[in-house]
């Protein structure tokens, strides 16, 4: 039975492409206005998702995406706790990115995480597709009560 062990490899690859995208698309002015660091984005993400453990590598990938799509200023407002309706929409988008694992690179959508996307925390009765779920036929009965979510 295969146990997936390639998450790290995948994340590194994703990070690489995000950095490459950022390197070619960032206007310098955006950088200047965007004081949000990876650490700040990670802390913001933990607060918004109400998850204490989030992957810093995924956070860097997502941050690069939000900066590349021109959200640096709004992100800074969000971190500072200021801002209005627009920051609320951005906050929802950050949670959506962590749950779906999908983000906008500025050149289109990409996958930042799949098996580690938060969607699976909301499906405790299942697991990421491509992972074994149990012995043959485990699906014939409802899941144990404690995993029903």
């Amino acid at each position: 039975m295969r146990i997936p062990t390639t998450r790290r490899d995948f994340l590194l690859a994703g990070l690489g492409s995000a950095i490459a995208a950022a390197g070619t698309t960032f206007p310098a002015a955006l950088h200047a206005g965007a004081a949000v660091t990876a650490e700040e984005f990670l802390a913001l993400s933990k607060s918004l998702t109400e998850q204490s453990s989030l992957d810093p590598a995924v956070a860097e990938t997502l941050l690069a995406g939000f900066l590349a799509t021109g959200n640096g200023g709004l992100l800074a407002e969000l971190v500072a706790g200021s801002g209005g309706a627009e920051t609320k929409v951005l906050a929802d988008s950050i949670v959506a990115a962590w749950y779906s694992g999908i983000y906008d690179t500025g050149k289109g959508q990409a996958v930042a995480a799949y098996t580690d996307a938060l969607v699976w925390t909301g499906l405790p009765y299942s697991k990421p597709f491509g992972y074994c779920g149990g012995a043959t036929g485990y699906w014939a009965d409802p899941p144990p009560v404690e995993t029903r979510g």
Partner: peptide, 16 residues
Amino acid sequence: PVSTARDLALEGLRGP
């Protein structure tokens, strides 16, 4: 379920 998770987050739901 990925799209379901995204849609619920965009509706403003959080955490538990």
